[in-house]
Design a protein around this nucleic acid. Structure first.
Lengths: 135, 135
DNA sequence: TCACGATAGTTTAGTATTGAACTAATTGGC
DNA sequence: GCCAATTAGTTCAATACTAAACTATCGTGA
């Protein structure tokens, strides 16, 4: 594949993502959280420890600390010290956090889904497969 | 397509992009610019006016102002007042800017291309087509 | 067991980003 | 032609982010 195509794919994809994020930001803010905080919430169940979250989301550790602090203050998650390793904090979604996350994801799905809707069902599946290979 | 799949595609794609950006950031910094400044540079020829750049890149106007200021100070681009509309500034890549942009894109291509390399040629073309439809 | 290199998470201090308000120029309606 | 509404870009003040340094705990090897 020519270098130009790599750049083109990158540019298209980057602009798509930024545009969707910018579009949903005001609605998500209405739920009492920022978009990046929402992204963090969605990964909490799969990665309950801040260090993992930082790694998975390519976010600096102090940023995770701050987001977690805010999400905890808002009642969206709580922290427990991990008994097996007193350095680690296990993050747990509260029912309120789960509910608000679902609402936020619905907004995101709607915004991103509006773009995805330009693809037919087979194309969407194909895209999912391709992105999975890339991850 | 189920809502879950939309969310999954989103998550995979977001993490992919962030991971690539984080990976190339130190190398790009070595060229004397930030990754987001590089993205801005790559759109300058297609969108020579700051307001368009803000719109295309989903970036607030003051952010564009600052990036342009820094890129100009670094000698990567220069500004001309647009004769037809004295409010507008036309941005022009300098030869140095073009050269450095090419280097930055090469780094990005290498990092992103390393992921794209997991797809065969047909899959890469398919991905480009799908993303273009989404844009 | 104890010392030390590594890891989890936080704090601090400085930089980066951006919403709101601003100036300057343009456009459309009358 | 003139003025109100709109648009381009900037400034300022406030917030968000993050690199570096720190504390606490862990794990390993002698």
């Amino acid at each position: 594949m020519a270098k130009n195509d790599v750049e083109k794919i990158w540019s298209l994809n980057y602009r798509l993502m930024m545009s969707v994020i910018t579009g949903v930001a005001p609605d998500v803010a209405g739920l009492g959280m920022e978009v990046k905080e929402l992204f963090l919430l969605t990964e909490v169940e799969a990665h309950p420890h801040p260090a993992e979250l930082a790694s998975v989301l390519s976010m600096p550790k102090p940023t995770v600390t701050m987001y977690v602090k805010r999400l905890e203050a808002s009642g969206f998650l709580r922290r427990e010290i991990d008994g097996a390793d007193l350095r680690r904090h296990r993050l747990i979604l509260t029912p309120e956090g789960r509910k608000t996350m679902a609402r936020g994801l619905a907004l995101l799905s709607k915004a991103f889904g509006a773009r995805l809707g330009r693809l037919n069902s087979a194309e969407q599946s194909e895209l999912a497969v391709l992105l999975e290979k890339l991850s």
